[in-house]
Design a protein around this nucleic acid. Structure first.
Ligand SMILES: [Mn+2]
Ligand SMILES: [Mn+2]
Length: 332
DNA sequence: GAATACA
DNA sequence: TGTATTCAACGCATA
DNA sequence: TATGCG
């Protein structure tokens, strides 16, 4: 069984189905009945190729995973500039970060946008399930999004605090860091959300609605990061240097700049056990084992168990940074 | 993984 | 037709 | 200007 057809989603209510074809010769010569019958579907070639060697997880498993989580993945991905990490020969071989579209894509949106140097470049964005699955066919494993939307690139609707621990920081300290951050945001009357990164750390994310300037989210998140690093210098740093980070947690506020990306909810990571960046309820943090607690194996079970996405209401929250920013300036 | 160059 | 080669990012901060 | 970093 070496090719697989992944059908387009018909509607949110109807789950997608997945067809496997055992035919190896059908791809040669005239189009086979199978290919013709699945017009509009995405073909996954080399579905049996092992892409996570330690776990014997195949490219077909990755496609099936993304199909399974699709209705949860898409809301926070669609119509946002999208980059991928591709590993055409598996997570243990050469992987690369890709932001520009490659030849052969038919279901991925493209947008010309101005880069920092002033020139235009073409970026990708997901339009629907087919966009994601086509990128999987091209070897995409991880999905990274901008904190903005393609129809209003100069404003942002997210603040992302990326808590990046040095290797020896314990999980308990990372959880404490996220909770401390939440308390500070609560005091500023800002609602925040938390997710595992799929790596070692956590992300704390707040919606900004209506969307605001890049300058404002950067200044705000920088001010918070600096306050944490100043208040508890034994625990936090606000610069990326690994040397200065030793034994501490880097509060990475630089996700909050035009062109920066963050891992998308429900994206896999190219790490051992195929972990998933997983949105959580704050109350769950006490029983989570680590930033890689949910994996390609366990996440679908979690999804079946939950009645709604923990971040379901993120875009219903109306809040801005202006009042909070003023309080910070006064307190500084 | 796909496009290209070449045997 | 088969096989080898090449390519697939960018912006910020710091030193 | 050249890395380190995500
Ligand atoms: Mn991180
Ligand atoms: Mn290859």
């Amino acid at each position: 069984m070496r090719v697989m057809h992944v059908l387009k989603t018909v509607s949110k209510a109807a789950p997608t189905s997945l067809h496997r074809s055992a035919s190896k010769t059908s791809t040669r010569g005239r189009k086979s009945p199978v290919q013709r019958a699945t017009a509009g579907a995405i073909t996954i070639t080399h579905a049996d190729r092992v892409v996570y060697p330690g776990e014997s997880i195949t490219k077909g498993d990755v496609a099936a995973y993304y199909q399974r989580v699709m209705t949860s993945l898409l809301p926070n991905v669609v119509k946002r500039p999208l980059s991928v990490i591709r590993c055409p020969e598996g997570a243990r071989n050469t992987c690369f970060f890709q932001k520009h579209p490659m030849g052969g894509l038919h279901h991925v949106g493209t947008i010309e946008l101005k880069e920092e140097k002033g020139s235009l470049a073409t970026y990708m964005y997901a339009k629907n399930a087919s966009s994601i699955l086509e990128l999987v066919q091209f070897g995409a494993m991880e999905f990274h999004v901008w904190s903005t939307r393609i129809d209003r690139l100069e404003t942002t609707d997210r603040v992302v605090f990326d808590l990046d621990p040095s290797p020896r920081v314990t999980w308990e300290r990372i959880v404490a860091a996220a909770r401390l951050l939440k308390v500070q945001l609560d005091e500023l009357e800002l609602t925040s959300f938390v997710r595992t990164s799929g790596g070692k750390g956590l992300h704390v994310v707040l919606p900004v609605n209506p969307a605001c300037s890049w300058d404002l989210v950067k200044d705000f998140s920088h001010a918070i990061a600096t306050r944490m690093a100043t208040g508890q210098p034994q625990e936090f740093v606000d610069t990326a240097s690994k040397t200065k980070r030793a034994g501490k947690i880097y509060v990475d506020y630089l996700r909050n700049t035009r062109g920066a990306t963050s891992i998308a909810n429900y994206s896999l990571r190219t790490r051992k056990n195929a972990p998933v960046a997983t949105p959580l309820r704050w109350e769950e943090l006490s029983k989570i084992e680590g930033g890689d607690a949910f994996t390609i194996r366990s996440l679908p079970r979690r999804l079946s168990r939950l009645r709604k996405d923990p971040w379901e209401n993120i875009d219903s929250v109306k809040q801005t940074l202006s009042a909070a920013m003023k309080k910070l300036e006064v307190g500084a």
